[in-house]
Amino acid sequence: MKRYLIKQLLLILPTLLIVTIISFAMIRLMPADAVDVYLVTHHLEKNEKNIAVAKERFGLDEPVPVQYLHWLKDIIHLDFGKTYSTNQAVAPMLGKALVKTLQLAAASAIWIVVVTPVLGIGAAAKPEGAMDRLTRIYCLCGTAIPTFVLGFILIRLFSVNWKLLPAIPDGSAVSLILPSFTLSLSHIAYFVQMLRNEMLENRGEMFVLYARARGLHEKRIFWSHLLKNSVQPLVNTMGISIGGLIAGTVIVENVFSWPGLGRLITKAILSRDYPVIQGYILIVAVTYICANTISDLMSAIVDPRIRLGKGDVS
């Protein structure tokens, strides 16, 4: 286990390095030149002097690899530069928004972790039963309804008609309920379906037959063998999904005016604020990497084949 952990952590470094290269290169590949944008957003005249000033400001007068190294050094010191539009430091801005988005993502993750087993296991316990049918309808709707439609429906019902929950964040935990539920609904639908199908599929596996042949009770087989084997692939997917929760908040945050990364990036894109976009790309990439590593570790905890390496006779 220790060896596996160290290996996984070491693997993060090269991935991170590649991410920084891509995110650095992406900005250089943008159709709009950073200098032009700077001049336009600062209402400066496009002349030799101003261009030279802008170039110096962005360090564009140096060769590209040197620029990259400078930039990398800044990033490591968590210096993402300053915004073009307001000349504020990007890092604290991103940091504040990230905290908000993490709150939203964490609340959604709680929804997922609580609701998925209830519906998934309930549906798998009695295939074609009432619970299974209802769950299937939910899964169909949950994956089909776009987030913004659902968000507005929920606001209409819970905030406008019944006045139960706030639609706009007021800093309280209650105001997290609607946006996080909206965000998690499609994820839950996906996981429920996956869990149910895994359980039904595993039911025909040899290990279930063998457990029955040894006289184990149905309930015991269901809750230990069947469940453990069916949860294993979910844990793996969960990592990608958690990354998606953080990256996928753009719509939900705009619908609920949630001051997180999604809203920040929408504004930044509209005003072509490249340092912010660059910082956002990096944050999302790092989140994905972290989420994947966590899910890898969780898989290793659940599945001894990953932990010990398959076929390793020691």
Binding site: M206, F207, L209, A213, H217, K228
Partner: peptide, 22 residues
């Protein structure tokens, strides 16, 4: 169920898949 494993035990083919790998 009570008789299985107690009065009658079973040996299956393909033990690689019969045991629960987890």
């Amino acid at each position: 169920t009570e008789a299985r494993g107690n009065q009658v035990s079973v040996i299956l083919q393909d033990p690689m898949n019969a045991f629960d790998q987890l």
